[in-house]
Design a protein around this nucleic acid. Sequence first.
DNA 1: CGCGAATGTAGAACAAGTTTCAGACTGGGT
DNA 2: ACCCAGTCTGAAACTTGTTCTACATTCGCG
Lengths: 214, 214
Amino acid sequence: MTTESKPAPALSAPPTAPSATHHPQLTERQQARRRRIIEAATGLAGRGGFDAVQMREVAEASSVALGTLYRYFPSKVHLLVATMHDQLERLHETLRRRPPTEDDPAARVVRTLMRAFRAMQREPHLADAMVRALIFADRSVNAEVAAVSRLTTAIIVDAMGLPGPATAEQLAAVRVIEHTWHSALVTWLSGRASIAQVRADVETACRLIARPAA
Amino acid sequence: MTTESKPAPALSAPPTAPSATHHPQLTERQQARRRRIIEAATGLAGRGGFDAVQMREVAEASSVALGTLYRYFPSKVHLLVATMHDQLERLHETLRRRPPTEDDPAARVVRTLMRAFRAMQREPHLADAMVRALIFADRSVNAEVAAVSRLTTAIIVDAMGLPGPATAEQLAAVRVIEHTWHSALVTWLSGRASIAQVRADVETACRLIARPAA
DNA sequence: CGCGAATGTAGAACAAGTTTCAGACTGGGT
DNA sequence: ACCCAGTCTGAAACTTGTTCTACATTCGCG
Protein backbone atom coordinates (compact mmCIF):
# COMPACT_ATOMS: atom_id res chain seq x y z
CA MET A 1 0.00 0.00 0.00
CA THR A 2 0.97 3.62 -0.10
CA THR A 3 2.14 3.71 3.47
CA GLU A 4 5.59 2.35 2.73
CA SER A 5 7.95 4.58 4.62
CA LYS A 6 10.74 2.47 6.08
CA PRO A 7 10.24 0.43 9.24
CA ALA A 8 7.19 -1.12 7.62
CA PRO A 9 5.78 -3.35 10.32
CA ALA A 10 3.90 -6.35 9.04
CA LEU A 11 0.71 -4.84 10.34
CA SER A 12 -0.70 -1.67 8.99
CA ALA A 13 -2.34 -0.14 11.97
CA PRO A 14 -2.44 3.62 11.86
CA PRO A 15 0.83 4.34 13.59
CA THR A 16 0.40 6.91 16.30
CA ALA A 17 3.54 8.38 14.91
CA PRO A 18 5.48 10.67 17.19
CA SER A 19 5.79 13.10 14.35
CA ALA A 20 4.26 16.42 13.54
CA THR A 21 0.72 17.68 13.70
CA HIS A 22 0.11 16.28 10.28
CA HIS A 23 0.03 12.55 10.05
CA PRO A 24 0.62 12.07 6.37
CA GLN A 25 -0.02 8.39 6.00
CA LEU A 26 -3.61 8.74 7.17
CA THR A 27 -6.50 9.44 4.86
CA GLU A 28 -8.62 12.54 5.29
CA ARG A 29 -11.29 10.71 7.20
CA GLN A 30 -8.66 9.13 9.40
CA GLN A 31 -7.01 12.42 10.16
CA ALA A 32 -10.39 13.79 11.05
CA ARG A 33 -11.07 10.83 13.32
CA ARG A 34 -7.73 11.20 15.00
CA ARG A 35 -8.38 14.86 15.55
CA ARG A 36 -11.86 14.24 16.92
CA ILE A 37 -10.46 11.69 19.34
CA ILE A 38 -7.79 14.03 20.65
CA GLU A 39 -10.30 16.81 20.98
CA ALA A 40 -12.64 14.56 22.93
CA ALA A 41 -9.79 13.54 25.20
CA THR A 42 -8.81 17.17 25.69
CA GLY A 43 -12.35 18.07 26.59
CA LEU A 44 -12.82 15.26 29.04
CA ALA A 45 -9.43 15.85 30.59
CA GLY A 46 -10.23 19.52 30.98
CA ARG A 47 -13.09 18.69 33.24
CA GLY A 48 -11.92 16.02 35.67
CA GLY A 49 -8.30 15.25 34.86
CA PHE A 50 -6.74 11.86 34.30
CA ASP A 51 -9.53 9.83 35.82
CA ALA A 52 -12.22 11.62 33.85
CA VAL A 53 -10.71 10.51 30.56
CA GLN A 54 -12.53 7.22 30.23
CA MET A 55 -11.93 5.34 27.06
CA ARG A 56 -15.59 4.51 26.52
CA GLU A 57 -16.51 8.14 26.90
CA VAL A 58 -13.75 9.28 24.58
CA ALA A 59 -15.01 6.80 22.02
CA GLU A 60 -18.56 8.00 22.31
CA ALA A 61 -17.66 11.69 22.34
CA SER A 62 -15.61 11.29 19.19
CA SER A 63 -18.19 9.07 17.49
CA VAL A 64 -15.83 6.17 17.10
CA ALA A 65 -16.08 2.57 18.19
CA LEU A 66 -14.03 1.53 21.16
CA GLY A 67 -12.01 -0.86 19.03
CA THR A 68 -11.21 1.94 16.62
CA LEU A 69 -10.10 4.20 19.41
CA TYR A 70 -7.69 1.50 20.48
CA ARG A 71 -6.44 1.11 16.95
CA TYR A 72 -5.50 4.77 16.87
CA PHE A 73 -4.16 4.92 20.40
CA PRO A 74 -3.13 1.60 21.88
CA SER A 75 -3.74 2.77 25.44
CA LYS A 76 -5.10 5.61 27.49
CA VAL A 77 -1.58 6.75 28.19
CA HIS A 78 -0.75 6.82 24.49
CA LEU A 79 -3.81 8.94 23.93
CA LEU A 80 -2.95 11.42 26.65
CA VAL A 81 0.67 11.68 25.59
CA ALA A 82 -0.54 12.44 22.08
CA THR A 83 -2.83 15.05 23.60
CA MET A 84 0.13 16.62 25.34
CA HIS A 85 2.07 16.61 22.09
CA ASP A 86 -0.81 18.41 20.47
CA GLN A 87 -0.97 21.03 23.19
CA LEU A 88 2.78 21.54 23.16
CA GLU A 89 2.68 22.20 19.44
CA ARG A 90 0.12 24.92 19.99
CA LEU A 91 2.24 26.40 22.72
CA HIS A 92 5.36 26.25 20.60
CA GLU A 93 3.53 28.06 17.85
CA THR A 94 2.32 30.77 20.22
CA LEU A 95 5.79 31.21 21.61
CA ARG A 96 7.26 31.42 18.18
CA ARG A 97 4.91 34.25 17.37
CA ARG A 98 5.66 36.18 20.56
CA PRO A 99 9.07 35.16 21.86
CA PRO A 100 10.29 36.32 25.25
CA THR A 101 12.08 39.65 25.23
CA GLU A 102 14.40 39.46 28.22
CA ASP A 103 18.08 40.07 27.71
CA ASP A 104 19.41 37.13 29.66
CA PRO A 105 18.95 33.64 28.18
CA ALA A 106 18.20 32.21 31.61
CA ALA A 107 15.56 34.87 32.17
CA ARG A 108 14.02 34.09 28.79
CA VAL A 109 13.78 30.42 29.67
CA VAL A 110 12.20 31.21 33.03
CA ARG A 111 9.71 33.51 31.35
CA THR A 112 8.86 30.93 28.75
CA LEU A 113 8.31 28.15 31.24
CA MET A 114 6.20 30.41 33.39
CA ARG A 115 4.08 31.20 30.37
CA ALA A 116 3.59 27.50 29.84
CA PHE A 117 2.83 27.18 33.51
CA ARG A 118 0.21 29.87 33.31
CA ALA A 119 -1.46 27.98 30.51
CA MET A 120 -1.57 24.97 32.78
CA GLN A 121 -3.05 26.99 35.61
CA ARG A 122 -5.88 27.88 33.29
CA GLU A 123 -6.61 24.20 32.71
CA PRO A 124 -5.27 22.39 35.74
CA HIS A 125 -7.29 19.26 35.08
CA LEU A 126 -6.02 18.99 31.56
CA ALA A 127 -2.49 19.54 32.80
CA ASP A 128 -2.99 16.85 35.38
CA ALA A 129 -4.12 14.31 32.82
CA MET A 130 -1.31 15.04 30.41
CA VAL A 131 1.53 15.27 32.89
CA ARG A 132 0.51 12.21 34.84
CA ALA A 133 0.26 10.23 31.63
CA LEU A 134 3.63 11.47 30.48
CA ILE A 135 5.51 10.48 33.58
CA PHE A 136 3.60 7.27 34.13
CA ALA A 137 4.21 6.09 30.60
CA ASP A 138 6.12 2.85 30.36
CA ARG A 139 8.40 1.58 27.61
CA SER A 140 5.57 0.86 25.21
CA VAL A 141 5.05 4.60 24.91
CA ASN A 142 8.70 5.47 24.52
CA ALA A 143 8.50 6.76 20.98
CA GLU A 144 5.69 9.13 21.79
CA VAL A 145 7.23 10.28 25.04
CA ALA A 146 10.50 10.90 23.26
CA ALA A 147 8.67 13.06 20.76
CA VAL A 148 7.17 15.13 23.54
CA SER A 149 10.56 15.40 25.13
CA ARG A 150 12.12 16.63 21.90
CA LEU A 151 9.42 19.23 21.60
CA THR A 152 9.96 20.41 25.13
CA THR A 153 13.69 20.63 24.59
CA ALA A 154 13.12 22.57 21.40
CA ILE A 155 10.89 25.03 23.24
CA ILE A 156 13.52 25.62 25.90
CA VAL A 157 16.39 25.89 23.44
CA ASP A 158 14.36 28.28 21.33
CA ALA A 159 13.73 30.36 24.41
CA MET A 160 17.43 30.58 25.07
CA GLY A 161 17.69 32.24 21.70
CA LEU A 162 21.28 31.29 21.10
CA PRO A 163 23.11 32.61 18.10
CA GLY A 164 24.69 29.28 17.25
CA PRO A 165 23.94 25.69 18.22
CA ALA A 166 23.83 24.92 21.92
CA THR A 167 26.98 23.66 23.60
CA ALA A 168 27.16 20.39 25.47
CA GLU A 169 27.16 22.38 28.70
CA GLN A 170 24.01 24.16 27.71
CA LEU A 171 22.28 20.96 26.68
CA ALA A 172 23.13 19.44 30.04
CA ALA A 173 21.58 22.44 31.73
CA VAL A 174 18.50 22.11 29.56
CA ARG A 175 18.14 18.51 30.60
CA VAL A 176 18.17 19.41 34.26
CA ILE A 177 15.74 22.24 33.63
CA GLU A 178 13.42 19.84 31.89
CA HIS A 179 13.66 17.33 34.72
CA THR A 180 12.96 20.07 37.22
CA TRP A 181 10.10 21.37 35.15
CA HIS A 182 8.35 18.02 34.97
CA SER A 183 8.91 17.08 38.56
CA ALA A 184 7.95 20.49 39.88
CA LEU A 185 4.79 20.36 37.83
CA VAL A 186 3.91 17.06 39.40
CA THR A 187 4.33 18.41 42.90
CA TRP A 188 2.22 21.42 42.01
CA LEU A 189 -0.51 19.28 40.46
CA SER A 190 -0.62 17.20 43.61
CA GLY A 191 -0.88 20.30 45.72
CA ARG A 192 2.43 19.65 47.44
CA ALA A 193 4.07 22.78 46.07
CA SER A 194 2.75 26.26 45.49
CA ILE A 195 2.92 28.22 42.30
CA ALA A 196 5.63 30.35 43.82
CA GLN A 197 7.59 27.25 44.70
CA VAL A 198 7.44 25.99 41.14
CA ARG A 199 8.72 29.30 39.91
CA ALA A 200 11.51 29.26 42.46
CA ASP A 201 12.54 25.76 41.45
CA VAL A 202 12.57 26.64 37.78
CA GLU A 203 14.63 29.72 38.52
CA THR A 204 17.08 27.72 40.54
CA ALA A 205 17.52 25.22 37.74
CA CYS A 206 17.89 27.98 35.19
CA ARG A 207 20.90 29.30 37.04
CA LEU A 208 22.74 26.46 35.38
CA ILE A 209 22.43 28.21 32.05
CA ALA A 210 24.38 31.21 33.13
CA ARG A 211 26.94 29.29 35.13
CA PRO A 212 28.78 26.66 33.16
CA ALA A 213 30.92 24.01 34.81
CA ALA A 214 34.14 25.01 36.44
CA MET B 1 1.11 23.81 52.16
CA THR B 2 -1.12 20.82 52.56
CA THR B 3 -4.71 20.47 51.60
CA GLU B 4 -5.54 18.13 54.43
CA SER B 5 -9.28 18.10 54.22
CA LYS B 6 -9.85 14.68 55.68
CA PRO B 7 -12.41 15.25 58.40
CA ALA B 8 -11.04 12.88 60.99
CA PRO B 9 -13.24 9.83 60.40
CA ALA B 10 -14.89 8.43 63.48
CA LEU B 11 -13.38 5.11 62.55
CA SER B 12 -10.01 4.10 63.79
CA ALA B 13 -8.54 2.46 60.77
CA PRO B 14 -4.85 1.69 61.11
CA PRO B 15 -3.48 4.92 59.77
CA THR B 16 -0.80 4.22 57.22
CA ALA B 17 1.06 6.90 58.99
CA PRO B 18 3.91 8.51 57.13
CA SER B 19 6.03 8.14 60.17
CA ALA B 20 8.95 5.98 61.09
CA THR B 21 9.62 2.30 60.66
CA HIS B 22 7.81 1.62 63.84
CA HIS B 23 4.10 2.21 63.79
CA PRO B 24 3.39 2.52 67.45
CA GLN B 25 -0.37 2.57 67.48
CA LEU B 26 -0.57 -0.91 65.99
CA THR B 27 -0.64 -4.10 67.98
CA GLU B 28 2.05 -6.72 67.55
CA ARG B 29 -0.03 -8.79 65.22
CA GLN B 30 -0.89 -5.73 63.22
CA GLN B 31 2.70 -4.64 62.90
CA ALA B 32 3.50 -8.14 61.73
CA ARG B 33 0.69 -8.03 59.19
CA ARG B 34 1.81 -4.68 57.93
CA ARG B 35 5.33 -5.96 57.57
CA ARG B 36 4.21 -9.11 55.79
CA ILE B 37 2.19 -7.03 53.35
CA ILE B 38 5.08 -4.74 52.53
CA GLU B 39 7.39 -7.68 52.13
CA ALA B 40 4.94 -9.36 49.79
CA ALA B 41 4.68 -6.18 47.77
CA THR B 42 8.46 -5.86 47.68
CA GLY B 43 8.79 -9.41 46.45
CA LEU B 44 6.18 -9.11 43.76
CA ALA B 45 7.53 -5.77 42.64
CA GLY B 46 11.02 -7.22 42.45
CA ARG B 47 9.90 -9.66 39.84
CA GLY B 48 7.75 -7.76 37.37
CA GLY B 49 7.56 -4.16 38.50
CA PHE B 50 4.47 -2.06 38.98
CA ASP B 51 2.11 -4.26 37.01
CA ALA B 52 3.20 -7.39 38.82
CA VAL B 53 2.05 -6.02 42.13
CA GLN B 54 -1.53 -7.19 42.02
CA MET B 55 -3.56 -6.55 45.10
CA ARG B 56 -5.08 -10.03 45.18
CA GLU B 57 -1.65 -11.56 44.97
CA VAL B 58 -0.28 -9.29 47.65
CA ALA B 59 -3.17 -10.30 49.87
CA GLU B 60 -2.60 -13.97 49.27
CA ALA B 61 1.17 -13.78 49.62
CA SER B 62 0.85 -12.00 52.94
CA SER B 63 -1.97 -14.24 54.17
CA VAL B 64 -4.40 -11.43 54.60
CA ALA B 65 -7.88 -10.88 53.23
CA LEU B 66 -8.25 -8.41 50.42
CA GLY B 67 -10.41 -6.20 52.56
CA THR B 68 -7.76 -6.15 55.25
CA LEU B 69 -5.08 -5.25 52.78
CA TYR B 70 -7.19 -2.28 51.78
CA ARG B 71 -7.66 -1.34 55.37
CA TYR B 72 -3.92 -1.13 55.85
CA PHE B 73 -3.19 0.49 52.50
CA PRO B 74 -6.12 2.28 50.90
CA SER B 75 -4.74 1.80 47.40
CA LYS B 76 -2.02 0.12 45.42
CA VAL B 77 -0.20 3.41 45.19
CA HIS B 78 -0.33 3.86 48.95
CA LEU B 79 1.14 0.41 49.34
CA LEU B 80 3.97 1.04 46.93
CA VAL B 81 4.78 4.44 48.37
CA ALA B 82 4.96 2.79 51.80
CA THR B 83 7.26 0.21 50.24
CA MET B 84 9.49 2.96 48.95
CA HIS B 85 9.51 4.57 52.37
CA ASP B 86 10.61 1.27 53.82
CA GLN B 87 13.41 0.87 51.30
CA LEU B 88 14.57 4.44 51.77
CA GLU B 89 14.84 3.91 55.48
CA ARG B 90 17.11 0.95 54.89
CA LEU B 91 19.19 3.00 52.51
CA HIS B 92 19.39 5.89 54.92
CA GLU B 93 20.61 3.52 57.61
CA THR B 94 23.26 2.05 55.34
CA LEU B 95 24.44 5.50 54.36
CA ARG B 96 24.58 6.59 57.94
CA ARG B 97 26.88 3.70 58.68
CA ARG B 98 29.18 4.36 55.76
CA PRO B 99 28.91 7.99 54.74
CA PRO B 100 30.61 9.28 51.60
CA THR B 101 34.17 10.41 52.07
CA GLU B 102 34.68 12.95 49.31
CA ASP B 103 35.89 16.42 50.22
CA ASP B 104 33.44 18.42 48.19
CA PRO B 105 29.79 18.49 49.34
CA ALA B 106 28.59 18.29 45.75
CA ALA B 107 30.76 15.27 45.15
CA ARG B 108 29.41 13.63 48.27
CA VAL B 109 25.86 14.13 47.10
CA VAL B 110 26.67 12.73 43.68
CA ARG B 111 28.33 9.74 45.26
CA THR B 112 25.39 9.15 47.57
CA LEU B 113 22.82 9.34 44.83
CA MET B 114 24.87 7.04 42.66
CA ARG B 115 24.97 4.56 45.50
CA ALA B 116 21.22 4.72 45.70
CA PHE B 117 21.12 4.36 41.96
CA ARG B 118 23.27 1.26 42.09
CA ALA B 119 20.85 -0.27 44.55
CA MET B 120 18.09 0.39 42.06
CA GLN B 121 20.08 -1.18 39.26
CA ARG B 122 20.21 -4.33 41.32
CA GLU B 123 16.41 -4.41 41.52
CA PRO B 124 15.18 -2.49 38.53
CA HIS B 125 11.69 -3.93 38.71
CA LEU B 126 11.31 -2.95 42.32
CA ALA B 127 12.61 0.50 41.51
CA ASP B 128 10.11 0.76 38.69
CA ALA B 129 7.18 -0.09 40.91
CA MET B 130 8.18 2.30 43.65
CA VAL B 131 9.15 5.26 41.52
CA ARG B 132 6.14 5.00 39.23
CA ALA B 133 3.85 4.84 42.23
CA LEU B 134 5.57 7.81 43.82
CA ILE B 135 5.23 10.10 40.84
CA PHE B 136 1.81 8.89 39.86
CA ALA B 137 0.41 9.39 43.33
CA ASP B 138 -2.44 11.84 43.51
CA ARG B 139 -3.54 14.07 46.36
CA SER B 140 -4.98 11.23 48.40
CA VAL B 141 -1.44 10.00 48.94
CA ASN B 142 0.03 13.38 49.75
CA ALA B 143 0.91 12.65 53.35
CA GLU B 144 2.81 9.51 52.46
CA VAL B 145 4.52 11.09 49.48
CA ALA B 146 5.53 14.02 51.63
CA ALA B 147 7.08 11.61 54.11
CA VAL B 148 9.12 9.99 51.35
CA SER B 149 10.12 13.40 50.13
CA ARG B 150 11.29 14.41 53.57
CA LEU B 151 13.34 11.27 53.82
CA THR B 152 14.93 11.87 50.45
CA THR B 153 15.74 15.44 51.37
CA ALA B 154 17.25 14.25 54.63
CA ILE B 155 19.44 11.78 52.77
CA ILE B 156 20.74 14.47 50.45
CA VAL B 157 21.27 17.01 53.17
CA ASP B 158 23.06 14.40 55.25
CA ALA B 159 25.29 13.67 52.30
CA MET B 160 26.21 17.31 52.04
CA GLY B 161 27.58 16.98 55.53
CA LEU B 162 27.22 20.62 56.40
CA PRO B 163 28.56 21.92 59.66
CA GLY B 164 25.50 24.04 60.40
CA PRO B 165 21.93 24.06 59.09
CA ALA B 166 21.51 24.39 55.34
CA THR B 167 21.02 27.85 53.88
CA ALA B 168 18.00 28.77 51.78
CA GLU B 169 20.26 28.67 48.75
CA GLN B 170 21.33 25.18 49.54
CA LEU B 171 17.82 23.99 50.15
CA ALA B 172 16.80 25.40 46.79
CA ALA B 173 19.62 23.44 45.20
CA VAL B 174 18.54 20.32 47.02
CA ARG B 175 15.04 20.72 45.66
CA VAL B 176 16.29 20.86 42.10
CA ILE B 177 18.57 17.92 42.72
CA GLU B 178 15.64 15.96 44.03
CA HIS B 179 13.50 16.88 41.05
CA THR B 180 16.30 15.90 38.73
CA TRP B 181 16.86 12.69 40.58
CA HIS B 182 13.25 11.58 40.33
CA SER B 183 12.78 12.60 36.76
CA ALA B 184 16.09 11.14 35.62
CA LEU B 185 15.20 7.90 37.34
CA VAL B 186 11.96 7.78 35.42
CA THR B 187 13.70 8.23 32.10
CA TRP B 188 16.19 5.54 33.02
CA LEU B 189 13.47 3.13 34.12
CA SER B 190 11.71 3.64 30.82
CA GLY B 191 14.92 3.00 28.94
CA ARG B 192 15.02 6.50 27.52
CA ALA B 193 18.24 7.43 29.28
CA SER B 194 21.38 5.44 30.00
CA ILE B 195 23.01 4.98 33.35
CA ALA B 196 25.73 7.36 32.27
CA GLN B 197 23.14 9.92 31.34
CA VAL B 198 21.51 9.73 34.76
CA ARG B 199 24.87 10.26 36.36
CA ALA B 200 25.56 13.21 34.11
CA ASP B 201 22.22 14.78 34.93
CA VAL B 202 22.74 14.34 38.65
CA GLU B 203 26.18 15.84 38.36
CA THR B 204 24.85 18.78 36.43
CA ALA B 205 22.22 19.45 39.06
CA CYS B 206 24.75 19.09 41.85
CA ARG B 207 26.74 21.93 40.40
CA LEU B 208 24.13 24.12 42.00
CA ILE B 209 25.45 23.23 45.40
CA ALA B 210 28.85 24.70 44.75
CA ARG B 211 27.60 27.71 42.84
CA PRO B 212 25.14 29.84 44.75
CA ALA B 213 23.12 32.56 43.08
CA ALA B 214 24.86 35.65 41.87
C1' DC C 1 -15.84 -13.87 82.72
C1' DG C 2 -18.37 -11.69 79.04
C1' DC C 3 -19.86 -7.96 76.31
C1' DG C 4 -19.42 -4.81 72.40
C1' DA C 5 -16.72 -2.35 69.22
C1' DA C 6 -13.08 -2.78 66.23
C1' DT C 7 -10.82 -5.85 63.22
C1' DG C 8 -10.28 -9.68 60.10
C1' DT C 9 -12.11 -13.17 56.46
C1' DA C 10 -14.16 -14.96 52.30
C1' DG C 11 -16.16 -13.93 48.45
C1' DA C 12 -19.30 -11.44 45.47
C1' DA C 13 -19.93 -7.26 43.11
C1' DC C 14 -18.59 -3.15 40.64
C1' DA C 15 -15.70 -0.01 37.58
C1' DA C 16 -12.77 1.06 33.94
C1' DG C 17 -8.90 -0.31 30.86
C1' DT C 18 -8.15 -3.60 27.34
C1' DT C 19 -9.08 -7.47 24.12
C1' DT C 20 -11.78 -10.05 21.05
C1' DC C 21 -15.09 -11.22 17.51
C1' DA C 22 -18.49 -11.39 13.96
C1' DG C 23 -20.31 -8.67 10.68
C1' DA C 24 -20.81 -4.29 7.84
C1' DC C 25 -18.29 -0.82 5.11
C1' DT C 26 -14.68 1.23 2.01
C1' DG C 27 -11.60 1.83 -1.53
C1' DG C 28 -8.36 0.68 -4.83
C1' DG C 29 -7.01 -2.67 -8.41
C1' DT C 30 -8.47 -5.92 -12.11
C1' DA D 1 -18.90 -4.03 -11.72
C1' DC D 2 -16.44 -7.29 -8.58
C1' DC D 3 -13.35 -8.58 -5.20
C1' DC D 4 -10.18 -8.41 -1.39
C1' DA D 5 -7.66 -6.51 2.19
C1' DG D 6 -7.94 -3.40 5.42
C1' DT D 7 -11.21 -0.58 8.49
C1' DC D 8 -14.86 0.41 11.38
C1' DT D 9 -18.71 -0.90 14.41
C1' DG D 10 -21.27 -2.80 18.29
C1' DA D 11 -21.19 -5.66 21.82
C1' DA D 12 -19.47 -9.00 24.84
C1' DA D 13 -15.69 -10.78 27.49
C1' DC D 14 -11.70 -10.48 30.34
C1' DT D 15 -8.53 -8.27 33.87
C1' DT D 16 -7.38 -5.99 37.85
C1' DG D 17 -8.13 -2.20 41.20
C1' DT D 18 -11.63 -1.12 44.50
C1' DT D 19 -15.87 -1.57 47.28
C1' DC D 20 -19.35 -4.03 49.73
C1' DT D 21 -21.59 -7.64 52.56
C1' DA D 22 -22.30 -11.06 55.89
C1' DC D 23 -20.14 -13.51 59.24
C1' DA D 24 -16.14 -14.77 62.48
C1' DT D 25 -12.41 -13.37 65.56
C1' DT D 26 -9.95 -10.48 68.66
C1' DC D 27 -9.21 -7.18 72.11
C1' DG D 28 -9.89 -3.91 75.73
C1' DC D 29 -12.29 -3.41 79.68
C1' DG D 30 -16.02 -3.22 83.24
